[in-house]
């Protein structure tokens, strides 16, 4: 990573609300912790039981997370989702991650949201599917993926 970017990242970390949760500077309701992840209840949940899965390493977007962290996160998310289904007696869970402000990212620290879902609740993560002509997009993606 270029030196300028490293300096920017360090500045970001100093003021990052999620880094303060991970360090304990900000109190939180922890549901799980391991070497890579710090998982807490969201204090302003979309639904009761809404969990934030916070990578301890400060990265602004998820493509900068190492594979090892993703591996860990996937199994922790699976386990916590199972607990949420049982604990809150719901029929589904949503997992949401935003990279970039246009995608809904509020803080410059990559975070997964795991939200218990009930039919007709007010969480707007059930978008409508539409038909598109994606022949051009498919070709571009195949090219990037070397297909």
């Amino acid at each position: 990573m270029a030196d300028d970017n490293k300096k920017l990242l360090e500045e970001q970390k100093k003021n990052c609300p999620f880094c303060k949760i991970v360090s304990g500077e900000t109190k939180s309701k922890k549901v799980y912790e391991d070497q890579h992840l710090f998982c807490v209840l969201d204090i302003k949940p979309g639904n009761e039981g809404h969990i934030l899965i916070i990578p301890k390493k400060h990265v602004p977007v998820s493509p900068l997370l190492e594979d090892e962290v993703l591996a860990n996160a996937s199994l922790v998310i699976k386990n916590l989702s199972n607990k949420l289904l049982k604990a809150f007696k719901v029929q589904g869970t949503s997992l949401f991650l935003a990279n970039g402000g246009v995608a809904g990212q509020m803080m410059p620290h990559s975070v997964f949201h795991l939200i218990p879902r009930s039919k007709g609740d007010s969480v707007n993560l059930n978008p409508v599917f539409k038909k598109f002509d994606v022949s051009e997009e498919r070709e571009k993606l195949k090219k990037v993926l070397g297909q």
Partner: peptide, 26 residues
């Protein structure tokens, strides 16, 4: 997520899992 940036020049990405019918799984 990185491939989408490269291929489609998008400005952001979401990862979304709709786990179960009440989460919008179709």
């Amino acid at each position: 997520c990185g491939s989408l940036f490269e291929a489609l020049k998008c400005e952001g990405t979401n990862i979304l899992i709709q786990n179960g019918v009440s989460a919008g799984q179709t």
